[in-house]
Amino acid sequence: MPESGAARLERVFRDAGRPLFVPYVMGGYPDIDASRRHAQILAKHADIIELGIPFSDPLADGPTIQAAGQAALDSGTRPSDVLDIADDLRDGPPVVVMTYFNTVIAQGASEFLGAAAAKGVAGIIIPDLPVDEATEVREAAREAGVALIALAAPTTDDARMAEIGESAEGFVYLVAVTGVTGGEMTMDDRLRALVDRARRHIPVPVVVGFGVRTPDQAEQIGELADGVVIASEIIRRIGDAPDARAADAAVDDFGAGVADALRS
C-alpha cells in the first residue's frame, strides 16, 4: 500500500521544521509545455506545488487567475494534460491540484480522483466545495489516497473552524482576505488573530494564501503559519515577461527569493 497523499503532505510539514513554500502554477498557462517547465523550475524551491486545472467559471478567483485559466482553456488544455504535468513532478515535492467542483464531478469524483492519484497527486483543493457539501467527495478522495484540502476564511466562525478541523487532512488552506485571489493581504492584528484562531481549532498544518505578493509578506506569514501559497503574483510575472526564457527566469528568481525568505 503506497503512502497516502495526506501522509505525504503531513510528512513534508513535519520534516521541514520551517514554514513551507507552496507556489501555484496554472496548468496550460501560457501553454502546457511552459507550465510544465514553470512547475519544474518551482519544484527546486518549493515544498509543495499547487497545480491549477483551469475551469471556465472560477468563482473564487480574481482577474489574474481568471485570465490565465481562460488562456489555458483557449489553447485547448484539458484536465488530463494537467495531471500529466503532475506525473512529471513525481521526483519533486508533492503536488496538490486546485480545481472547481464541476471539473471533478464531470467525469465522476471517484474516476477523477483515481486518475489524479495514478499521476501521483497528493491532494486536491476545491474552493467551491465547502465542508458541509464535501462528505461524498471526501470518501472518494480517501479511497483514492488523495487528501481533500479544506479551506477556511476570515468569515468562518469558531464552530465551523472546528468542523473543518475535524475532517481535515494534509493541511488546511486559510484564506487571508475576505475576497477573491489576486488582491493584496496586509499583515495586521486581524490576520494574526485569524491565523491564531484557525490554529486553535484545526489540528493539521495551516497554510495561508490569497493576496500574498512578496518574499517579505511570505516571511511575515511564515512567522505565524505553517506555510504560504503564492499564486497570482507568479502568474503576473509570467505574463509580464517579454518572452518564454524571461518568464522562466522570472519564475526561478521569484521562487528562489521566497524560498530564501522562508528559510532565513
Binding site: A60, P127, D128, V175, G179
Partner: peptide, 9 residues
C-alpha cells in the same frame, strides 16, 4: 451551496 467558504456565513 457550492460556493467559496467566505460566503457560507
Amino acid at each position: 451551496r457550492y460556493v467559496p467558504e467566505t460566503v457560507i456565513g
